[in-house]
Structure formats: C-alpha cells, structure tokens
Design a protein around this nucleic acid. Structure first.
Lengths: 189, 189
DNA sequence: TTATAATAATAACGAACGTTAAGTAAAGGA
DNA sequence: TCCTTTACTTAACGTTCGTTATTATTATAA
C-alpha cells in the first residue's frame, strides 16, 4: 500500500503476465486488477508498457545472470558445473519467471530488437568465459574448442529445461551428463 | 488468385506474422494486407484467428517433425545424427518458420494448453525412440540412459540454434559435438 | 439463358486496448 | 494556517482489435 511497495508489486505482477501471455497478450488492466490498484497508477510509476517490460529485462534479468556468473569457486570442474546448474532448481519463483522472460527475449520470441542487441553482448562473452574456466582441464586435449562448445550447448538445454519448462533436474542426472561431455579431460583434474 | 491459392497464401503470411509478433501481436488485418486480400476473406477460409494458428501447429508443424523422424537409414550412428541435424540447415524458409512456431508452443511461449498437451504426447516418444536407435551401440556401456539423455539434450540445443536463432551450423561442428557425447560407445559401431 | 454456388469486397459492429486529463485525499514543511 | 508534494481514483479519449452483415462479382451447371 505504501510508496515503494506498490511499484514492486506492479513489477511482480507484470512478470507473471508477460510470462504467461507475452508482451502483446498482457494488458495494463489485468496487471492493475492483480495488484488491486487503479489503472493509471501503473503510469504513475512507469512511463508506459514498454518501459515496464524493459525494466524487467534490463534490470531484473541481468541481475540474475550476473549473480549466477559470480558463483565462481572452482575446485573440481564437474562439481562446479553441476552446482551451477543444480542451483537453478531452487531459484525463487519470481527469479525463475524473470529468467524465463529473458530467455524468451534472447530467442527473439518476445521484446524488440533493441533488447535483443542488449543480449547479444552478453552472449558473446559466454563461450570465452567457459573456455577460460576449462583451460586448466583441456590443455592436454586436441579438441578443446569442440568440448567447450558442446558443454555450453548442454548447459543451455538444461537451463531451458529447469527455467522454461519448469522441470526439476536431479543433481546426479546433471552430473552424469556433464561428466559425459567432460570425460575426456576430467582425468586431468 | 485462384481457389486453393489464396488459402495457402494466407497461411504462409500467418506463419510469418505469428513468428515475428506472437499470437497476440499478430492481427488479421496485417495478414490480409500482406496477401493483398480483403479482411473477411480470412474468415472465409478459416473460422477464426485461433483456428488459423491451430492449423499451422497441428498440421504443418507435425508434418515437418514426422518427415524428419522418418529419415531413418542408419549405418553409422554418428553419421546418422550428424545428418539428422545438418539437414535442418537446408529447411525451406517456410518450414523453418513453422518449426520455430512449434518450438515456441512447445516451450509454452505461445499457443494454449490444448496445443501444449498435443505436443507433450510427441515429446514422450522422443527419448524411447532414441534409446531404441542407440541400443545396438550402448549395450556394452553402463550409463546407457545418461548417454541417451545427454544426446537428446545436445540435439535440442542444436535444433534451437538452427531453427530458432536461425544460425548455420557447419557439418563438422555438429559431428564433433555428437562424437564427444557418443565417444564411449562409438567404438562398438 | 438462367439459376446456383463459390469467391470476393465495403462497411460497420461492439469490445478492448494503451494512454491521459482532471480531480481527490492525505501528509509535511513554511 | 496555507501551500506544495505525493499517492491515488474516476472517467474518458481515440485507436485498433476480432468478427460479421450485407452485397457484389465471377464461375459452373442446368
């Protein structure tokens, strides 16, 4: 009911609606009804519908990505990646929905080109980051690049399964799959 | 201009619009403008917007999936999966867009629950089908299930890359990644 | 030729959309 | 006390949406 409160509640309801019905399927009226406020209050806190959507992607989504990326404490590389994926399972419902929305924009299923460009920047940093992480373990291997690519591809699918399809992935299944890809260099760890 | 023609042209324009703007972002008026016909002509051939969308998914999308699935002519398993993915690159533009739309529904990014259920049926058949395909090659291996799962996950990402993100995946990159996952049982081939 | 069916367009319907103008209620500082 | 700012509502705006009633044109078959 008080100041900051309502603004936040609007954003949370917006995430839910954008998630369920997409940008065009979401109406300001439905959001207002959900948070039990009048329609113009949304325009009181956000310039318009697009700004509300953009704030969710640009602030909330990237906040989650960066938090995930800062989890770096590696001893065993397979443990690390297993944990990296497994912890997505226990993301809060809100974070999961924001993540889902972000993936939707990333796959150009929603949002606009400007947001897409924003994401491309991030994506370009993914492969090099994992290559760096894996460097100590791939130095005795001749297909380093392919292994990094395969791993990143595998991680992507698991992320989609957990976040987008909202499935629970057991820790040992995650570990098994990562091990299969990294088995050729895991001996060096 | 003649009978069957217009109906088909409407569907093709619809695929493009649903793809670009989602179900709610697509308007009958825009489709009509694209095919250069009057607005009610779309209602002449399709009951309403939803039926137009449903026909694309239920008929066109599954047609593509089934065509893909019938490609079974295996001698070498890695060759087979490489070809299976590689040929997605040369899908026609229309087929690619339909495929993309289907994935969108499959990820519950568009469409409704009824369509989702339709897809779940199909998805349940995927893992067993690949397990069957791989059976001759995994009999001397103790983690058969994990390998099948990993492979299917990897295939999914590659499909998304080609069809959804519209990227070209070179044949040798595809083969490399599949080989990494299947290396433990490829010796038996 | 005439009747019938298929293919098309014009114009409009009510409903819902994003957005805003105008005003109210409460709170805080001068 | 009065004034300004903040938080909020009612009511409406212009537009666009999905959809349809009505009518015109063309093709086919009798």
């Amino acid at each position: 009911m008080t100041e900051k409160d309502l603004r936040e509640r609007i954003k949370e309801a917006a995430v839910e609606h954008f998630n369920k019905n997409g940008y065009h399927g979401t109406t300001i009226r439905n959001i207002a009804k959900d948070v039990n406020c009048s329609l113009p209050m949304i325009y009181y806190y956000y310039k318009n519908k697009k700004e509300l959507f953009d704030e969710i992607i640009k602030k909330e989504y990237f906040k989650i990505l960066k938090k995930q990326a800062s989890l770096l404490k590696i001893d065993n590389i397979i443990d690390f990646y297993t944990k990296f994926i497994y912890e997505l399972n226990s993301l809060s419902n809100y974070d999961k929905q924001v993540y889902r929305l972000g993936i939707k924009v990333y796959l150009s299923f929603d949002g606009d080109e400007e947001l897409m460009d924003h994401m491309d920047e991030w994506e370009k940093s993914i492969l090099p980051r994992h290559r760096e992480l894996l460097k100590p373990y791939t130095k005795n291997v001749n297909n380093e690049e392919a292994i990094v690519r395969t791993l990143v591809h595998l991680l992507e699918t698991m992320i989609v399964n957990i976040v987008v399809k909202d499935r629970y992935l057991p820790k040992d299944e995650i570990r098994e799959e990562i091990s299969i890809v990294l088995q050729s260099c895991a001996d060096n760890s």
